[in-house]
Amino acid sequence: MSFPEREWMSCSTGSAYRKDFRALLGLLRGGQIHPVVAERLPLPEARRAHKLLEHSAETGKLVLVPAGAQGAG
């Protein structure tokens, strides 16, 4: 691993990562960013989700939803 890669990895972990994640959540809550969700799938359908990712040109994210959570299916 080259030096620049190590430097990037260390910056993307720990407190720097938490700071960026909090900023991202703030943008999301404030309606400043709008992630595109292609499909929500129940967690037991993770295998299907992987196949969709491999064979689909669909735009958007696939979200795996745990049992009992809102948004599954």
Rank of each mutant, 00 (worst) to 15 (best):
S2D: 15
S2C: 12
F3H: 07
R6N: 03
E7N: 03
M9W: 14
S10R: 12
S10H: 11
C11P: 02
C11E: 15
C11V: 06
S12V: 08
S15Y: 07
A16D: 14
A16K: 06
Y17F: 15
Y17L: 09
K19D: 15
D20A: 04
L27C: 02
L28A: 12
R29C: 11
R29Q: 15
G30P: 04
G30W: 13
G31S: 12
P35D: 08
P35I: 13
V36W: 13
V37A: 06
V37L: 11
E39P: 05
E39L: 15
L41T: 01
P42C: 00
L43R: 08
L43D: 08
L43H: 11
P44S: 00
E45N: 08
A46W: 15
A46T: 13
A46G: 09
A46I: 13
R47N: 08
A49W: 13
A49D: 14
A49M: 14
H50Y: 02
L52R: 15
L53S: 05
H55L: 03
E58G: 03
E58L: 11
T59P: 05
G60S: 09
L62I: 11
V63C: 10
V63H: 08
L64S: 03
L64N: 06
L64G: 03
V65H: 05
V65E: 05
V65S: 02
V65D: 03
A67R: 04
A67K: 03
G68A: 02
A69R: 12
A69Q: 13
Q70H: 05
G71Q: 05
A72C: 00
G73N: 10
